[in-house]
Write a protein that binds this DNA or RNA. Structure first.
Lengths: 347, 347
DNA sequence: TTTTATCTTGCAAGCGTTTGCAAAATTGGC
DNA sequence: GCCAATTTTGCAAACGCTTGCAAGATAAAA
């Protein structure tokens, strides 16, 4: 039984369209029309209104606008967290692209909502935002079922497990993993350890498949003991690597499903007194900013992270403008970035 | 002259308090009172309403609530960007603390608003958010003057140049810089280069002062050529270091005003074919996650970044509950974190 | 000049809440 | 069992905006 706090006076002495209307000598609906860009307004009237609004320092009240059925000009972003390079690069892309439109960003971190996704999505979406970006959600369905309508503007980033009719942006995970593995094989490695990502997420399985395919095409039998389960986290990479190094025949190269786990792997390797890349080569995936900060600089498969965000926003705005339009899936190309963490197999 | 897009039907088939009221057999104001925790409601009524709301999947419409004078339960964060460890650590703290309350976060990156801060702050604040956090703003006044009332809930992080009556959280910049310099001097260094931060920001001047004070207390004359201007960015650190190394008598240690510029400094040093810490010691400030990723691991002055965010939120919520209360300034302690980038002066 | 099509504008209703005010119901004291 | 004090409820008026409808202006056509 909470105590109500009543001291919130309506101190918004703010200028409303009514004030502007009075100053400009027109009706408030005309002001509304000018301000929301309606076509059929006399140019003189428009000018008058705009001037008055400017002079009085009018700013729109987004709440009211969106309550009345207009747009809130806010889009929601649901991300697992924001404390890692992967996500913050994507968010940067989102932010940059949003800056070109006049939308603002509402940020939700999903760790808060474990188990109550549906409820929170409802709250979010209940008028507040015009569209929603889901960034690498574990189980997209949890969120999607809470959406108010089937064609509520929604874009998924980096998650392909979401049914056919969903707008998605992701990268060529399979291809990227294939090339990375190929690269390692080209350096002479035959025992290539693989640390998986979090296997609920589609990118993880795609990367694993790419790895398998590359071995297969090179007629290298797949040794299942070389495939260890990770979780896209640094610690997972560390632990997975420890298991790999404890093998009777440890790998000479390790392909980690993302850079974070690759960084964990590097630590584990060093903890074993081994050198990178002389003793063990390491390759990652993502090319987060940290990848070129670690020593040795990490060879990795670049995903165009910033572009993920930009494209997602563009797709979302499209969808907002035309909700009935067909969903699209945009797959961006990955690219092998060779730095210092891989060496040819010697001996 | 934009084309109006009218296809946004009110498809919010959402449950409103009126629906809940009907189902529970009470008036909608009673529902409102139950839902916003008003005291004087009969327990049975309360139960009935809560049940009905639950059963119907009611979720509040934040727009309407806040328009009608309630709280939006959203706080705004104005940050320069989000693509660096410094900020994302703080945001993490904010997010964590927010998760414990039931507030949500609206994120604004200020780079979008260059020169129009006042206008955007007005928009933001115009009903949308219950309070505002300003993260390391260059010129706080630009934002503050746009606030609707003098005691609109506002907290500044890491910016002390904001007049006396502002709630602020920052760290012991002077002290931290003093200790870092002291540490370098203790290692025998006498020529300690200093790369400043962006000098518009109070932390920059405080750190510079701390550096000066430490030299002074050790009776080491201050060589102004050893103090070069940076901007808290990696590139600034790089360029500053190049100037330092080009000096007739280059420094044997470099104190960069933050980790980003320290990382830039390290690159410059390596680019000159010198080794860290054997040839030049480097010390940073902040202890962002990247600091322990680089090679060698960066010795630095830790700021409790996550805590910045947490404390800021707590102060802000306090302020929201009691806007008339006195402003406070909370200064958190820094701490020297010794890693591998500094060595005793040899020869 | 009249008629008709096309622009412009204003009015009023409504979006989903909160909250002041007053009426109704309950409680307690005699 | 009655009256006053207190608790509980409902009504109605905002909050600031959008938008369908209809009327008034204006331009084009006849």
């Amino acid at each position: 039984m909470t105590i109500q706090n009543n001291n919130r006076k309506k101190s918004h002495n703010s200028v409303t369209i009514v004030d502007v209307a009075r100053a400009a000598g027109v009706s408030y609906s005309t002001v509304s029309r000018v301000l929301s860009g309606f076509e059929f307004v006399n140019d003189d009237t428009r000018k008058k209104v705009l001037q008055a609004a400017e002079a009085m320092g009018y700013v729109v009240n987004l709440q009211a606008r969106s309550l009345a059925g207009g747009r809130s000009n806010i889009i929601g972003l649901l991300a697992p967290a924001i404390n890692n390079g992967y996500i913050s690069e994507i968010v940067r892309g989102i932010d940059e692209e949003l800056a070109r439109s006049d939308y603002d960003l509402m940020l939700y971190t999903t760790h808060r909502y474990a188990g109550k996704e549906a409820f929170y999505v409802k709250t979010i979406v209940n008028g507040l935002v015009d569209g929603l970006i889901l960034l690498a959600p574990l189980i997209p369905a949890n969120y999607m079922q809470a959406l108010p309508s089937h064609d509520f503007p929604l874009v998924l980033i980096d998650q392909a497990n979401s049914g056919p009719n969903t707008t998605t942006v992701d990268a060529t995970n399979w291809q990227g993993a294939y090339e990375a593995t190929q690269y390692l094989l080209g350096l002479g490695h035959r025992r290539v350890g693989f640390i998986t990502g979090y296997m609920e997420i589609s990118s993880s399985t795609e990367r694993l498949d790419g790895y398998r395919a590359a071995l297969h095409h090179n007629r290298i039998p797949i040794d299942e003991t070389l495939i260890v389960t990770g979780d896209y986290q640094s610690l997972g990479g560390f632990q997975g690597t420890e298991r790999l190094l404890a093998l009777p025949q440890p790998p000479t190269a390790i392909f980690a499903s993302n850079d974070r786990s690759a960084i964990g792997a590097m630590e584990a390797i060093r903890a074993h007194g081994l050198h990178i890349p002389q003793d063990v080569s390491v390759i990652g995936f993502d090319d987060i900013p940290e990848a070129s900060l670690v020593y040795p600089k990490l060879t990795t498969v670049r995903q165009p992270l910033v572009q993920f965000g930009q494209v997602a926003v563009r797709l979302l705005l499209e969808k907002i403008d035309a909700p009935e339009k067909e969903a699209r899936r945009v797959t961006l190309a990955t690219q092998l970035v060779i730095r210092d963490s891989c060496a040819p197999l010697t001996g």
